[in-house]
Write a protein that binds this DNA or RNA. Structure first.
Lengths: 221, 221
DNA sequence: ACCTGAACACCGTTCAAGT
DNA sequence: ACCTGAACACCGTTCAAGT
């Protein structure tokens, strides 16, 4: 009890810093989801007014981007042993899972192009694996966007709606497709919706890896 | 002048119907963008209160989905002559362009799974082309998701931010990547960001078509 | 049945004024 | 320089009350 304290015992309001704001935002997001990470809600959490945050953060989009990069620090960039393709799928799956586990995060990754340090580490790790696999550099340079975009979009799609009602609609639409007007949909039927999420995603990554390897960029490009 | 009219000349407020609401929403979206298609704004346009719309529309997400399907009616499903791959890329590019031309639409397509009649027509057209190309049905059934998702995500990414500031950040991040810590990023350098949007997208579609053709689904799946 | 006004519970962002 | 309260201009959705 030797440190001097202010007269009244209070939760000790810490000085505002960008790092502190982002850290609080990450905590709030883990607790309540990204859509609750609003300027006003966050300000309340920090025991201040929303206006004060604008000294450290340009706007809500930038705040969400900072939260995203923080979370990307938890992606597993060092997969186990195995073929380079398997390890690549492992990294991409880890990335997808991080987005998937935090509703709203994938959405924000699609809208505001990530460029934080943890995102760069992810890009580097994926490029290293593509290089190890002998993918031509030009194709790797364009292919990585496709790989990360697919991961991000899959995460955004598969929990954004959240509501199974949407899925019921899709299922009904496929089932009710007339063989007259939509013969191919009718023929494939439930196979269009078959497979678990992870199964389809892993297959999708293989498709992209194989396609990137075998599809040259036009000479003029 | 023979039809009976109400005493005062007024802009003739039409009775509310779901079709009328959606049509007005489409007009509003074309004029001001999807983010202005709010319940309140739309109600003002229809000269009523926001609460009235809830008789015809479950919520904002459903309204946006209806607007999306309306717009999908303008996708070109009957491309010219040429190899099936080229025609497929043409259809997908048309779809991407429709989303791209209407800010916010792609976002909404990612969040609320489309299942309207025009969307089904698009799926049918793409499946027909994959079938014509001899893609095994099982691979086509899963591949179509990948194709449409890539189109949607690309549209969402490339105009959502809208701000070139985001891109400047990415560019700076790539340029400042140290060869020590990020050797592959440094080695590829500007090639990571090279190419026009349409060039990269067309290449991406080829990657997916080639990959879908050459990547079998696991027997157990 | 359909429509309405009012209410509840929120938003992002700016700005003049204070310390 | 940093922080604040108040204001401006909005949101989605629900509900009791009217026609």
């Amino acid at each position: 009890m030797n440190a001097p304290r202010s007269r009244r015992e209070r939760p000790a309001k810490p000085a505002l810093t960008r790092a502190g704001i982002v850290a609080t935002a990450v905590g709030l997001m883990k607790a309540e989801g990204l859509d609750r990470v609003t300027m006003r809600r966050l300000a309340t959490e920090l025991d201040t007014g929303a206006a004060s945050l604008y000294v450290y953060v340009r706007n809500t989009a930038e705040l969400h981007a900072a939260v995203l990069d923080e979370l990307l620090g938890t992606v597993n960039l060092r997969p186990g042993k195995g073929e380079w393709q398997d390890r690549l799928v492992e990294v991409l799956t880890s990335y997808t899972k991080v987005l998937f586990d935090h509703p709203g995060l994938a959405q924000s990754a699609l809208v505001a192009r990530p460029s934080g340090p943890h995102y760069l580490n992810l890009v580097e790790a994926v490029l290293a694996l593509l290089s190890e696999g002998g993918i031509p550099p030009g194709q790797a340079a364009w292919g990585i966007d496709l790989l990360l975009q697919t991961a991000t979009a899959t995460a955004a799609e598969h929990q954004a709606g959240d509501s199974p009602a949407d899925w019921d609609l899709v299922e009904a639409a496929v089932r009710n497709a007339s063989p007259k007007t939509h013969p191919h949909i009718a023929a494939l039927g439930s196979d269009l919706l078959s497979g678990s999420g992870p199964q389809r995603l892993a297959w999708g990554f293989r498709v992209l890896i194989n396609g990137t390897r075998s599809t040259p960029r036009e000479p003029s490009e």
